[in-house]
């Protein structure tokens, strides 16, 4: 939960990473989705006064709607709009196959 103006980027990153539909965080094409903290950087979460942006790698076969709902549920209510960017999809090599057993 947020207190005052501060939003904990680490908490958001951990919550999103734990989401079933998400394979990982994604910093965007140029690494522009990131939060810079003293001495380190949380990639995939950007907190601005007007909005929060989260970049994720989805886990196929989760649909965009699933990923969206999962991330927003994991983050919980915020005091500003939450933008979600799905930058890539992670596809398991051994998914359900219509072919018989190899």
């Amino acid at each position: 939960m947020t207190t005052g103006v501060g939003i904990d980027a680490d908490r958001i990153a951990a919550a999103v990473r734990a989401t079933r539909e998400v394979a990982g965080l994604d910093g965007g094409r140029y690494g522009e989705i990131a939060t810079y903290l003293p001495g380190r950087c949380v990639s995939g979460v950007r907190i601005r006064p007007e909005s929060v942006t989260i970049g994720v790698i989805g886990r196929y076969p989760a649909t965009v709607t699933d990923i969206d709902a999962g991330v927003r549920a994991a983050v919980g209510p915020l005091d500003r709009p939450l933008h979600l960017h799905i930058g890539d999809l992670h596809i398991e090599e051994t998914g359900p196959n219509i072919l018989g057993p190899s």
């Binding site: 909005s51 929060v52 965009v64 969206d68 709902a69 999962g70 991330v71 927003r72 549920a73 994991a74 983050v75 919980g76 209510p77 915020l78 005091d79 500003r80 709009p81 939450l82 933008h83 979600l84 960017h85 799905i86």
Partner: peptide
């Protein structure tokens, strides 16, 4: 929960 939060403070999904 997620849907509700989204309705209160809309955000984009890209």
């Amino acid at each position: 929960t997620g849907r509700g939060a989204e309705r209160d403070l809309p955000g984009r999904t890209t």
